[in-house]
């Protein structure tokens, strides 16, 4: 069973920001500093090179127990046994990536406005990028969304949101104040002489804000478990259930003579306990009634 992904500091590769230094060394420095999720982002290399880089990065991140996400390419992610992919709005739909990667891998999505964030949550993204908060050289030409969108996402979206785009040590507090719980940086980390030290300082800021403000999720839910939106028997419902069995129990159905279907596939009762429900999934609970 897959539990919701949790992280605080997301680092993305950007080899153009550290000419002359080895990418693996730079990322390892960030990992030592506490970066707890890594994305391989490389729009220049060939697929062959990408697979190689991803494999080497995977070896590295695995040693630190940190997930590796591959930008854009589910096939590369699979080839390197990476933990997931990150997609943009113009990339393949989440459902397609999910089909390729299976239910256990992570699928993240860049979003630039709240409608996209809601759609991503609905379609079953594991996390979303919220940004670019500030203008950034990594995404030239894209208008900054400002911290207003960060606040909006923090208030409205249940899956993990990570603020991204032009975030540095200097403006991190501003982003965290707007409601961000997780930060992502590219140039501010990998472009720095000492990525480890930058990561430490960014994490300190994140921790400080996280302890200052109660988590939004906890404000809403007694247990603090993340709440997801699911469609049950054609009805939009919110639930904190992590498995099909928990979901059935929520409606007092667990001991009744019923059959369950998740996203169009029958799930035998003995598997309910190990079948996870994810945001945006469609569940049918049915039984036999009189009929001709």
């Amino acid at each position: 069973m897959k539990s919701p992904i949790e992280f605080k500091l997301y680092v993305i590769t950007g080899e153009n920001y550290h000419p002359g230094r080895n990418m693996l060394e730079v990322i390892e420095s960030a990992l030592r500093g506490g970066a707890d999720i890594v994305q391989l982002r490389d729009k220049i290399s060939s697929k062959r090179e990408l697979v190689e880089k991803a494999k080497r990065l995977k070896d590295l991140t695995a040693r630190y127990g940190v997930p590796l996400i591959v930008n854009d390419h589910p096939d590369v992610a699979l080839a390197a046994d990476a933990d997931g992919v990150h997609l943009g709005q113009e990339d393949m739909p989440i459902s397609v990536a999910r089909e390729i990667l299976g239910p256990k891998r992570i699928v993240g999505l860049s979003t630039h406005r709240i409608e996209q964030a809601r759609a991503a949550e609905w379609e079953g993204a594991d996390y979303i990028g919220v940004g670019p908060v500030f203008p950034t050289a990594t995404k030239p030409g894209r208008q900054a969304v400002t911290t207003a969108y960060v606040s909006q996402a923090a208030a409205d979206i249940r899956i993990p949101c990570v603020a991204i785009g032009g975030i540095t040590e200097n403006n991190a507090d501003e982003v965290l104040k707007a409601g961000a719980r997780r930060l992502c940086a590219v140039s501010a980390i990998v472009g720095h002489d000492d990525p480890e030290a930058v990561c430490r300082r960014l994490l300190e800021k994140i921790e400080a804000w996280n302890s200052k403000t109660p988590k939004f999720e906890e404000g809403l839910n007694r247990t603090g478990a993340p709440e997801i939106r699911v469609v049950i028997n054609g009805r939009n419902e919110r639930t904190q259930a992590a498995t099909l069995l928990e979901l059935a129990a929520q409606y007092k159905l667990e001991s009744r003579n019923i059959v369950a279907e998740l996203d169009g596939e029958v799930v035998p009762r003995r598997l309910w306990g190990e079948t996870s429900v994810r945001g945006g999934c469609a569940v049918e609970f049915v039984h036999f009634v009189g009929g001709g």
Partner: peptide, 20 residues
């Protein structure tokens, strides 16, 4: 004997199924 397959009524905890 024939039956129909229908959605459970999520708001009612009574077993209105035919099988019983």
């Amino acid at each position: 004997i024939t039956f129909a397959v229908r959605r459970i009524n999520l708001d009612s905890y009574e077993d209105d199924g035919m099988l019983q």
